[in-house]
Amino acid sequence: MNKLEKLQGKTIVITGASSGAGRAAALEFAKYHTNLVLAARNVAALEEVKSECEAIGAQALIVPTDTSDSKAMIALANAANDWHGKIDVWVNNAGVLAAGDFDKTPMAVHEQVIKTNLLGYMNGAHAVLPILKAQGYGTIINNISIGGFLPVPYGAGYTAAKFGLRGWSEALKGELSEWPYIYVCDLFPAFLDTPGIQHAGNHTGKVLKPAPPVYDPFRLAKTMVKVAADPSANTYVGSASLLLKIGHAFLPEFMTKMTGLVMRRYLKSADPIALSDGNVFTTLDYGMSTHGGFGLPGKPKAHRKYIAGVLVAGMALGFYLVSKKK
C-alpha cells in the first residue's frame, strides 16, 4: 500500500470548500475514499460539492461555517470529531481578497480580510489542536500562497494577513516540536486560476485579473493530498512561487517597486467597473466552480523559462542600479 492509499477512511476537514482550490481539494481527496468535512459560508455550493465527492466514493458532511468566527470554528471541529471520532487532517484554506488604494479602501474591509485570512486560520488551529493533542497525531495544512513572501501593492490588508500567517505558523511549528506526530504544513502556491479574484472586494474601480502565469487549482489540490499523506513543513507549488520568493529575498526593494509599477500600469488600462465589497463580508451566488477561466495554454513547466528570464533580467537591472548608486 502506498502513502496515498493510506488516506482511505481518514477524516479531512477543508475550509473554503465551496469553490476554487478548496473545492478542487475536496474532489481530489474524495478519490481516496476519505471522510470529508466541507466548510464554507455558501450552503448551496457545499451541497453540490458534497454530491460530487460522494459520487467519487467519499463520505461527506457539510458544516456551514464563517472561519472568522472563532465559535463557529470550534463547532466545526467538534462536528468533525463527533462524526467519526477523530480528525486526521485539517486544511486551512478559506480566504478573501480586497484590492484598492490602502487609504481609499474602507478600514472595515481591511479588517475583515485580516479576520478571514489570518484569524480564520488561527481560529481553525486553535479549535482543532486540543483534539489532535488528545489523540496524539494529526496534520494541519495552511494554504498561505506566495503572498506570504511577496507583497501585493493595492492589496495591503491581504499582504498583512499573509505575512502574518507565515510568522504565526513558524511560531506554531516551534511550539509543536515536542509533538512528533502533529504536523503543521505550509503551502505557497503561485497565482491560481480560481474564481477568487471574481469574488474579490474591488475598490480600484477597474476589472481585476490575476497576473500570469496562473496555475490549475488541481495542482495545489494534488499537493494538499500529497502533503496529507507525507507531511512536509514548507512546499512551493509552481515554479513561479519559488522564483518570486528568491527574487524578493535578493532584491526586496526592487521587487516591491516593480510589483507596484506593474499594478499601476494594469489599472490605468483596465476596463472600469463599479466598486464592490465582493465576498469579503458575505458569500456570493456566482462563480462557485473550481476554475476562474484565467488559465494560460500549456503546462505549468512551460512558463518556467519565461518567468526565469524575467526575474534574471530584473535582478540584473537591480544590481546595475545598485552599483550605479555606489
Rank of each mutant, 00 (worst) to 15 (best):
M1S: 00
V128L: 03
V128A: 05
Q8E: 15
P252T: 06
A55F: 01
A161V: 11
E54V: 07
E47D: 15
P252S: 08
L192F: 10
L4M: 02
T290N: 09
A233E: 10
P252W: 10
A249W: 15
L165D: 13
D103V: 11
F191W: 10
L220P: 02
A125R: 05
H248F: 11
L176N: 03
K50V: 04
A94F: 03
S68T: 00
L132S: 01
Q112P: 00
P217R: 12
F149I: 06
N35V: 01
A77E: 04
A45P: 06
W168V: 03
V91L: 11
P217W: 13
N234V: 02
L129C: 08
I146E: 13
P231Y: 00
N234T: 02
G205A: 09
F281R: 07
T15H: 09
G136R: 10
N81D: 06
W179M: 07
L38N: 11
K324S: 13
A60K: 08
T204G: 04
P189H: 06
N143K: 04
M73A: 04
S323Q: 15
M255H: 04
V262S: 11
A77C: 11
S68Q: 02
A40I: 03
V91K: 06
P297C: 13
D216Q: 07
G278K: 05
G20Q: 08
S145P: 01
K71D: 03
Y32D: 00
E28Q: 11
E54K: 03
D285P: 10
L275W: 06
L317T: 14
A80C: 06
Q198P: 02
L27C: 08
I141W: 02
Y183Q: 00
S289V: 07
G278R: 10
A270L: 10
C53I: 02
Y236P: 13
S68V: 00
I307S: 06
N123T: 00
G247Q: 12
V152E: 05
P130Y: 08
T204I: 12
F250R: 15
M1L: 00
S241A: 15
A228C: 07
A72F: 06
K226D: 01
V280H: 04
S241D: 13
